[in-house]
Design a protein around this nucleic acid. Sequence first.
DNA 1: ATCAATATACAGGAAAACCAGTAGGGAATA
DNA 2: TATTCCCTACTGGTTTTCCTGTATATTGAT
Lengths: 211, 211
Amino acid sequence: MQHKPIHIIIVDDHPMVIEGLKTLLSDDERVRIINQFMNGTDALVFLEKNSADIILLDVNLPDINGVEMVPKILNIRANIGVIGLSTYSEPSIINQMIRNGVKGYLLKNVTGDELINAITQVHQGNFYFGSEVQKILADSVTQESSDLPKLTRREKHVLTLIADGKTTNSIAEELFISPLTVETHRRNLMQKLEVPNAASLIKVAVEKHLI
Amino acid sequence: MQHKPIHIIIVDDHPMVIEGLKTLLSDDERVRIINQFMNGTDALVFLEKNSADIILLDVNLPDINGVEMVPKILNIRANIGVIGLSTYSEPSIINQMIRNGVKGYLLKNVTGDELINAITQVHQGNFYFGSEVQKILADSVTQESSDLPKLTRREKHVLTLIADGKTTNSIAEELFISPLTVETHRRNLMQKLEVPNAASLIKVAVEKHLI
DNA sequence: ATCAATATACAGGAAAACCAGTAGGGAATA
DNA sequence: TATTCCCTACTGGTTTTCCTGTATATTGAT
């Protein structure tokens, strides 16, 4: 079905992992590992001159953060499919990786079949995330949205206006209410979200996806 | 290969779109549309009593925002695959949808083949995003990370402390520098990010992934 | 060695935010 | 009907931020 093998680069600072991946992929003729690197810089230098189809990218590299690696890779060669790899998985890390453009994400306890599956899927332009990864992502969503204090409509509205950098007075004008009322709303918001000022108010609001 | 058809629910307030989807899916025996709704509330009520495999969910519903629909659906039935649908696509919307747990996202100019493909992929537990959608997401990343003003280490540090709700004085104590210096840093930050106060400073900082 | 960027620091004053407590009217609800 | 929640509004005071402008020692780069 497929004539040319998929060209793969491995970036991981653990020799053991590299060997493991090699073993898992060695039997399959659809893929070929064309190079491997123990750090991010070397990989980027290589990519300036050469290309590949898929990069298996460890998240914890000695020199460059895996999260930061992804845009760097895609800046050099936008059509490479980057698949993130890590031993355990922080939801926020995975989210950042996805936002930065990884097409797949796997834990290192991945089976050979799943690995091949991920590689072929990503090579075809699809996304692939291991089932554990999906579970982690799903959990993180429900967890975040769990203990969010209930804000009233008015409070949400005021909140977004504060986030836009509006002052109490201009908010009051915009909503045709007294500045004193706006202050009350702001105070209630800070109390509900348990923060001491508007800056951190916005921070937790963004974190909890309230705005 | 597959005996039971995949059960599908359509949620969209445009009759035309519903008919279009029906036509695209009518020939295929692998899928079966079991119900359709013109608004979010009706769909949620239905899901309380019945289930489905896949939901094709329009983002612009009359009653409930599509983005908010996703967690509601998954709270009722976690194993439903939600595929987002929209005519045109705001990157931020798609990002929110993904974070909230959609497994796929398509534009409404989707072909029958791609639609079937997305449905089967998602039903198998994979993700599926149309190529245009992927392009939009990729563009949004490079765009966001493009014009970010360069912050110095010290400024970044001060920025995170501001985000934590610390006052100028406490930051000064923590960094063993004068409060006046901290103020200068804050001022420079606001100038660089072109915002009028600390609240919106934090907002754009989060948006641009600076903290 | 020189120039640019960074981190540091200050003055003086205006504006806004923050704190604590109170309170009335309206809508929803029990 | 009573109660609770929401939105509204106020007093009076303290703290912090924000503005404008200046300035110096240190570091990094050319």
